[in-house]
């Protein structure tokens, strides 16, 4: 599966959890810590993000940046696995 990762602006996050609900991989969860605004912020809790962007789409605070593995890197990794 193609890999992704998210970077969450933790000081901007208001912990509304809409991203958590929208994540098909259940990769996101609320932190036990609180941010500068006093909200428990969202963080990546599982290393299975696919970079589908759903979380960023529903984020009301534009707090989420999504990365995805570049196709050529993904293909190279696949080929390497096959070779192994």
């Amino acid at each position: 599966m193609i890999r992704g990762k998210v970077v969450i602006a933790q000081d901007i996050c208001k912990g509304c959890e809409l991203c958590i609900t929208s994540c098909p991989q259940e990769s996101l969860g609320l932190s036990d810590k609180i941010n500068i605004k006093g909200y428990r912020f969202v963080e990546l809790v599982k290393d299975n993000c696919t970079g589908c962007v759903n979380c960023a789409l529903v984020c009301p605070d534009a707090a989420i940046t999504v990365y995805r593995q570049r196709k050529e890197v993904f293909k190279a990794n696949q080929n390497m696995k096959k070779a192994v």
Binding site: G4, T65, Y67, R70
Partner: peptide, 18 residues
């Protein structure tokens, strides 16, 4: 690290927290 941005806040939004 082999990852590229596929979604980020547009520059047409300011950095002011809403």
């Amino acid at each position: 690290n082999g990852f590229e941005i596929v979604y980020k806040k547009p520059d047409t939004l300011t950095d002011t927290p809403m």
